[in-house]
Amino acid sequence: MIKKLESYNIVFIGFMGVGKTTISSHIAKLLNKELIETDVYIAEKANMDIPSIFDKFGENYFRDLESEAVAEISKKRGVIISCGGGAVIREKNVLELKESGIIIKLTATPNTVLQRVKGSKERPILNGHMNTEFIASLMEKRDNFYSNAADITISTDGKTVDEVAKECIEKSILFIESK
């Protein structure tokens, strides 16, 4: 069954703190596949961390780097891709990702997200806004982008990493079989 996934990228999208990094890392180990995190890819290429890119050049510049990264990464086959929270805001990124992969939207409640990210300084969009109201508002603004891009949606609330990973693999196989 898992053999069916070999030529597909498995792409994780969703709001920050929903578990994209944790789940994608776990699945990469389970399936013995390469993991590419778009934010890490961008930071390494720019030789600068994401908050510094935002501070020095602004969000639009970062989104341009993100689009370049998505185009490059999408050319690969059979990898696990964990996208930054805003990667699917641009339609061209979604089209690139869909061409080679299955897009899985991970979700969590605003309260769960807050609990997961409250100690982080690596979330430039949340700096000064680390509360459930702001998170809920931003989630609502972005949800259409995530929902329109997703082939599969999976909630991470109240589940173990292994439970979510297995659900992602099972639903990915079913998605491929339905094509």
Results as ranks from 00 to 15, higher is better:
105 K>G: 02
68 E>M: 11
106 L>M: 02
76 K>H: 10
90 R>Y: 11
76 K>L: 07
59 E>D: 03
89 I>T: 13
92 K>W: 00
74 S>K: 00
106 L>C: 01
99 E>I: 05
107 T>W: 00
69 A>W: 01
90 R>P: 04
81 I>G: 05
104 I>M: 04
99 E>F: 13
64 D>H: 14
106 L>D: 03
109 T>F: 05
82 S>P: 06
93 N>H: 07
60 N>G: 11
70 V>N: 01
61 Y>Q: 01
80 I>W: 00
95 L>N: 14
78 G>I: 10
67 S>R: 09
107 T>E: 11
93 N>Q: 07
86 G>C: 09
109 T>I: 09
97 L>W: 05
73 I>W: 05
96 E>K: 13
94 V>Y: 01
85 G>N: 08
77 R>T: 12
77 R>C: 00
102 I>Q: 03
94 V>G: 09
93 N>M: 08
57 F>Q: 05
81 I>L: 03
80 I>T: 11
89 I>Q: 14
69 A>H: 04
66 E>C: 13
107 T>S: 14
89 I>M: 13
108 A>F: 04
72 E>Q: 12
82 S>R: 04
96 E>G: 01
86 G>L: 08
97 L>N: 05
106 L>Y: 02
57 F>A: 12
85 G>Y: 07
69 A>M: 07
69 A>S: 07
108 A>W: 07
104 I>L: 09
71 A>H: 11
99 E>S: 15
69 A>C: 10
92 K>H: 12
67 S>V: 04
74 S>G: 12
94 V>F: 00
95 L>K: 14
109 T>H: 10
59 E>I: 09
62 F>C: 07
101 G>P: 02
94 V>T: 15
76 K>E: 13
71 A>N: 13
77 R>G: 02
90 R>N: 15
72 E>L: 13
92 K>T: 15
108 A>K: 06
98 K>W: 11
85 G>R: 03
93 N>S: 01
66 E>A: 09
75 K>D: 11
75 K>P: 01
73 I>T: 07
101 G>I: 04
92 K>S: 14
71 A>C: 09
59 E>Q: 10
61 Y>G: 00
62 F>G: 01
86 G>N: 09
78 G>T: 10
81 I>C: 00
104 I>G: 08
92 K>C: 12
110 P>Y: 02
68 E>F: 10
87 A>M: 10
101 G>Y: 00
72 E>G: 05
102 I>C: 05
79 V>R: 06
60 N>A: 14
67 S>N: 13
55 D>T: 14
55 D>V: 10
81 I>M: 02
71 A>L: 11
75 K>H: 10
56 K>N: 13
61 Y>I: 13
96 E>P: 02
83 C>Y: 05
68 E>W: 10
102 I>L: 03
90 R>M: 00
98 K>V: 03
58 G>D: 08
101 G>V: 00
78 G>N: 08
93 N>C: 11
109 T>P: 04
79 V>S: 07
101 G>C: 02
70 V>I: 15
55 D>P: 00
87 A>V: 13
110 P>T: 12
95 L>H: 08
103 I>T: 03
82 S>T: 03
68 E>R: 14
84 G>P: 04
82 S>Q: 05
67 S>H: 11
100 S>F: 04
87 A>D: 03
100 S>M: 03
55 D>R: 15
92 K>Y: 08
